[in-house]
Design a binder for these strands. Structure first.
Length: 644
RNA sequence: GCCGGUGUAGCUCAGUUGGCCAGAGCAGCUGAUUUGUAAUCAGCUGGUCGGCGGUUCGAAUCCGUCCACCGGCUCCA
């Protein structure tokens, strides 16, 4: 008898040599049907391996992340097996699971592959699955593994094996297809009831753009057909929220080939929206003691040589602008910080001046590879809600905490609840990628970690994600399709003050060096609007939305009254438009609903005679009849609540 | 930049194998209707079929090239 501890703490006795699958069956038939894998004392074990000693057993199902990954991992092998049967001689890179599904990187040699080939591959996968193929594990030595794949002519696998530690290496066999794999896998292919190949993409071998590009096939699989259908439906819904689509529909921004790709053009409604966001932040920043500054769109190359940006990014920037007579060189401003350093340096500073907080909605231009451009989230010209805080080392942590407060306030007002806070540190193995002394880096990294702790933020630490001049605290939010976007960022920087030889006079009359905090709560106006659009599906909060109210006269007879109501709303700073078209009320309501205008005021005979409005709320419906004054209070109350 | 895909009216899309002046719905304009909580009716305007070159008696359709966009990769101060 062995004693097996289950996750709920209970202990069950089994005969020594019972397999995990049999144990599942012993617990319940349902569990046995759904079990995908098992962990024994924290280690993955095959379901059919006899267990001979006491220990803790965790049976994995679709409800466990680990269970999903086992499921997808096996699915990836089936994909590869199908591809190998259809395209003999192809070579395989890696086939890992990802957050949603899995992919396999494959060298298709000269076979042309596109999504047109998916049905064929899917059919073959279906065939393999229906044969209920077992996933057979075998263990081989490193040399045997090398021999197998050398003979097969798969140089990618050979390379992977070479990089492995010596010792035992495991293979998994799916029918005739043998793959190098640590596992774990499903017992057999039976649980995979639904799967779909999603798209293809080029992917460099080992992520290195100097190496060969393989074809990556993305796919997903599920234990139930319904789950696949739901997933595909979710992707469809996500598409409807795409900021590029909504931006066009709501007339917020556009792009023009003639203006240039990656250069967004803000339309009147979008510009007004952006302005409101800017004013909102300016107001918050004012209470935190920030001062607005303005700097030019270009700067002398020497400025960026001094800051270090030129050495780091000069080769990948827009080419310098040269003056015709003098041959001076200017760069399109890629960063605001060097300019702000010069504002700091424009006069002698005392410790009494610190912290000095300089803010600017600064438009910067960065060269991005053409294939990188993406709507408003990846552009070549954008406006940062930038600010730089110059303070004493003693003030650093408090200032950092206050910046976190601003960011959290913004997230709260705009209802971003699903966000991740990332501590981005430098890569300790690649220190030459960064500028500045080890001592300063350590100080800066410590300050960030402490401030995040003090604010009680749940953080993830990423090494190698720091800016080249300092570590960062990055705030990412998830968009409609679960992609993560970086929004707010806070960075500590000891380097620029040194490079610009910034100083302040201490109470003891010494010349000391200030510390700098770079921060942008939105990140950039462009990206923020994009993420906000996807987050709200275009239904902006009332205080932010371009048109808050639309007045719908029942017929032309009541247009005059409609205009009168508009005027009253206007005097109360409520943004209202009148639908003066010669259309029926039903039509006007439908169009207003589609345009996502929060409130509709229907006015006709009875409203005009009583100085009233009939209120309809977007997606909610008829709210009844209000006096104009009551409606104004309703709107004001709503906006107040939103900004609390 | 790289791999793959796409590009027809302001928007969404038809237009098998090359062949009459390139189509529809919505939007827009004009007129009729004077309307009460998600589409009133009729008429009209609108496209060098992404650009340029080529093949052909003839190209939206075939070939080349460039551009833009889409899905990724790499990159992202």
């Amino acid at each position: 008898m062995i004693h097996i501890t289950l996750p709920d703490g209970s202990v069950r006795d089994f005969n020594a040599g019972t397999t995990a699958y049999e144990m599942a069956k012993g617990i319940s038939e349902g569990l046995a049907r759904n079990v995908l894998g098992a962990k024994f004392d924290g280690e993955y074990i095959p379901l059919d391996r006899p267990i001979t000693k006491d220990g803790a057993l965790l049976l994995l199902t679709w409800n466990d992340e680990d269970g999903k990954h086992i499921f997808w991992h096996t699915s990836a092998h089936i994909l590869a097996a199908a591809v190998e049967q259809l395209y003999p001689g192809v070579k395989f890179g890696i086939g890992p699971t990802i957050e949603n599904g899995f992919y396999y990187d494959i060298d298709f040699l000269d076979y042309p592959i596109s999504s047109d080939d998916f049905p064929k591959i899917e059919a073959k996968m279906g065939e393999i699955i229906s044969q209920r193929v077992k996933m057979v594990r075998s263990e081989v030595s490193k040399q045997e593994a090398l021999d197998y794949f050398s003979k097969k002519g798969d140089e990618y696998k050979v390379e992977l094996i070479r990089d492995l530690e010596d010792g035992t290496i495991s293979f998994y066999k799916t029918g005739d297809f043998v793959d190098l794999c640590r596992g774990p896998h499903l017992y057999d292919t039976a649980p995979i009831k639904a799967f779909k190949l999603l798209n293809t993409a080029g992917a460099y071998w080992r992520g290195d753009e100097k190496r060969k590009q393989l074809v990556r096939i993305y796919a997903i699989s599920f234990p139930k057909k319904k789950e696949l259908d739901d997933y595909l439906l979710m992707l469809e819904e996500a598409k409807k929220r795409d900021h590029r689509k909504l931006g066009k529909e709501l007339e917020l921004f556009t792009f023009s080939q003639k203006v240039g790709s990656g250069l967004p053009i803000w339309l009147p409604k979008g510009a007004a929206l952006r302005e409101r966001l800017e004013n909102f932040l300016k107001k918050v920043q004012k209470t935190y003691g920030y001062q607005q500054v303005i700097t030019p769109h270009i700067g002398n190359v020497e400025l960026y040589k001094l800051s270090g940006h030129y050495q780091k990014y000069g080769a990948d920037s827009f080419r310098p602008i040269t003056t015709p007579q003098e041959g001076e060189e200017f760069l399109l401003k890629p960063m605001n910080c060097p300019h702000h350093c010069e504002i700091y340096a424009s006069k002698p500073r005392s410790y009494r001046d610190l912290p000095l907080r300089l803010a600017e909605f600064g438009t910067v231009y960065r060269y991005e590879q053409s294939g990188e451009l993406h709507g408003l989230t990846r552009v070549r010209g954008f406006t940062q809600d930038d600010a730089h805080i110059f303070c004493t080392p003693d003030q650093l942590k408090e200032e950092f905490c206050k910046v976190i407060d601003i960011i959290l306030y913004i997230f709260k007002v705009l209802k971003f609840k699903d966000y991740i806070v990332q501590v981005s540190l430098r890569d300790p193995d690649n220190k030459e990628k960064y500028i500045g002394s080890d001592e300063n880096w350590e100080k800066a990294e410590r300050a960030i970690i402490e401030a995040a702790e003090e604010k009680g933020l749940a953080t993830v630490v990423e090494k190698g994600e720091a800016a080249f001049y300092g570590p960062k605290l990055d705030f990412m939010v998830k968009d409609a399709i679960g992609r993560k976007w970086q929004l707010g960022t806070v960075q500590v920087d000891y380097n620029l003050p040194e490079r610009f030889e910034l100083e302040y006079i201490s109470p003891e009359q010494e010349k000391l060096r200030p510390v700098m905090i770079h921060r942008a709560p939105f990140g950039s106006m462009e990206r923020f609007v994009a993420v906000l659009l996807e987050h709200t599906a275009g239904k902006f909060p009332l205080w932010l939305t371009p048109e808050q109210v639309i007045i719908l006269p029942i017929s032309e007879k009541f247009q005059e009254y409609a205009l009168k109501v508009q005027k009253i709303l206007d005097m109360n700073d409520i943004r209202a438009i009148v639908d003066e078209r010669n259309e029926k009320a039903g039509r006007k309501i439908r169009d207003a609903e589609m345009n996502k205008i929060p409130f509709m005021l229907i006015v006709g005979e009875k409203e005009e005679s009583g100085e009233l409005v009939s209120v309809r709320e977007h997606t909610v419906g008829d709210k009844g009849v209000f006096t104009i004054a009551d409606f104004v209070s309703l709107i004001k109350e709503r906006m107040k609540e939103e900004l609390e």
